[in-house]
């Protein structure tokens, strides 16, 4: 099984670190970005298979970042997962209507995160 190239965007350093810890050696090639802008700047070079996007960030928030990267030619269809603390069923629907394939809730369990991402990937890739 080849590694999944995952772009992960989160403004919080401690969460980026624990997510990196959780995903390393689990079959992911990671690029971590601290802001939506950084992600937009580096995405073309990295060419991710899958994007994990924090919703609430200062500056460009998750939904705005998603909107902008959809306008980039190679990333119209790259699956995006939102990563957020707010997950009422209604909100999940709202996020999906913005073009996300799924939502992962925070706080996350560092032992489960790789499995959660992989199972979403298996449902949506291609």
């Amino acid at each position: 099984m080849s590694d999944i190239k995952l772009l992960y965007v989160d403004d919080e350093e401690d969460i980026r670190e624990i997510a990196e810890f959780s995903l390393e050696d689990e079959g992911f090639e990671l690029l971590l970005c601290a802001s939506g802008q950084e992600a937009l700047d580096r995405i073309t070079e990295f060419k991710p298979d899958l994007i994990l996007l924090d919703v609430m960030m200062p500056g460009l928030d998750g939904p705005s970042t998603l909107k902008q990267l959809r306008q980039l030619p190679s990333f119209e269809h790259t699956p995006v997962i939102f990563f957020t603390a707010k997950v009422q069923p209604k909100e999940i629907e709202h996020f999906k209507s913005l073009g996300a394939v799924d939502v992962i809730a925070k706080p996350f369990d560092s032992m489960q995160l790789p499995h959660q991402i992989r199972s979403i990937w298996e449902q949506h890739h291609g």
């Binding site: 609430m56 603390a85 996350f108």
Partner: peptide
């Protein structure tokens, strides 16, 4: 919000 989203992971 960020506290709510992070503390549980730790």
């Amino acid at each position: 919000h960020s506290l709510a989203g992070s503390a549980g992971t730790f």
